[in-house]
Amino acid sequence: MATNESEENRPRHVAIIMDGNGRWASKRGRPRLFGHQAGARRVREIVESCPDLGVKYLTIFAFSTENWKRTQSEVSGLMSLFRRYITKEAQALLKRGVRVRFIGDRVRLDAKLTAMMDELELLTSDNDRVHLTIALNYGGRDEVARATKRLAYDVASGRLKPEEVNEETLPKYLDTYVLPDPDLVIRTSGEARISNFLLWQSAYSEYEFIDTLWPDFTPDVFAKVLISYGGRQRRFGAVPG
């Protein structure tokens, strides 16, 4: 049972590195894509649980810029899974008041998928109950590099003065410019690394690394992690008064 203090100190923005789909499938003697399919179903449950848990913003790491190194069959299967997810979940997301955004570099994604991403963003653009951000072909270093390039163009064109470039200016060029920074970053599956995810945005985020594989990450497990977060004191470099 959560304490009153922890209930009041729930994170508003949670980011999740959804890891462990392949291992979950292997333990069952099934192909890796079977695990990714189970993981996609779990996303729906976690999104649905957000309002009751006080989570307004949820950002999930679906496919990284490094994931192209996986086998062609797994990459193709994942891209097909993304298309099916959008087709299957679009109306449900709309009805549940979920606003969907995608972050990452879309250049390498196929035209059909990017068109579906655009359509889902537009379809849900008036929703405000939960803001779901899906990181697809996303890498933190790649995002900062792309942001810096856009910033450099603005400086070169005279739209921005060099002396105006600071830590408040750069975030306006990031993919997440309309989102608050995450309060909490969760990684499932027992791995204790951030894997190039939201490098700039998570500078002062709390981290939680848990052993649970993503397909086993139920809303109850999610709630327990949020309660644990509620007992932490975030000082942002200051000394508690």
Rank of each mutant, 00 (worst) to 15 (best):
G39D: 01
G22I: 01
R23N: 11
H36F: 00
L78T: 02
E7Q: 15
V107P: 00
V55R: 11
R101W: 02
E48P: 00
F63E: 10
D110N: 15
V100R: 06
E89Y: 01
A2F: 00
L33Y: 00
F102Q: 03
F61M: 04
T3S: 15
Q72V: 05
A38I: 11
L81G: 10
K95N: 15
M116Q: 15
L78Y: 07
G22N: 07
A15W: 02
A92S: 14
M1A: 11
L58T: 11
R44W: 06
W24K: 06
S76D: 13
L58C: 05
E66Q: 13
I16D: 00
E74I: 08
G104S: 07
R44N: 07
S64I: 03
I46R: 01
T114H: 05
D110L: 08
G77T: 01
A40C: 02
W24M: 06
C50F: 02
A115C: 06
R106D: 04
I46K: 09
D19M: 11
V43C: 10
F61Y: 15
Y57H: 12
V14L: 13
K27L: 11
A15K: 12
D19P: 04
R32M: 12
R83L: 05
I60D: 04
T65S: 15
R30L: 13
L58H: 11
C50K: 14
A25P: 06
G20D: 07
S49C: 04
R101N: 13
A90H: 13
M18R: 13
S80Y: 01
E48N: 09
Q37C: 08
G97T: 01
F63I: 05
R10D: 04
L109P: 03
G35H: 11
Q91G: 04
S73D: 12
V47N: 09
V107T: 12
T87E: 15
L33D: 01
G97K: 03
L33C: 00
G35E: 06
R41V: 01
Y85V: 13
L53H: 08
G35R: 05
N9K: 14
G54C: 03
T59R: 12
M18H: 02
V75R: 04
E66V: 10
E45T: 11
V98Y: 00
K56Y: 02
R99W: 02
S73Q: 14
G104C: 04
R28M: 12
Y85Q: 14
I17R: 14
R70D: 01
E5H: 13
N21S: 10
F102W: 08
I17L: 15
G54W: 02
F82S: 10
G20C: 13
G39N: 00
I60Y: 06
M116V: 05
R23M: 10
L109A: 12
V107K: 14
W68L: 14
K95A: 14
T114Y: 00
G54M: 04
N67E: 12
R44L: 08
V55S: 07
Y85M: 15
H36M: 05
A15L: 09
V43F: 01
T71K: 13
M1F: 03
M117N: 08
F82P: 01
I60T: 05
T114P: 02
A40I: 01
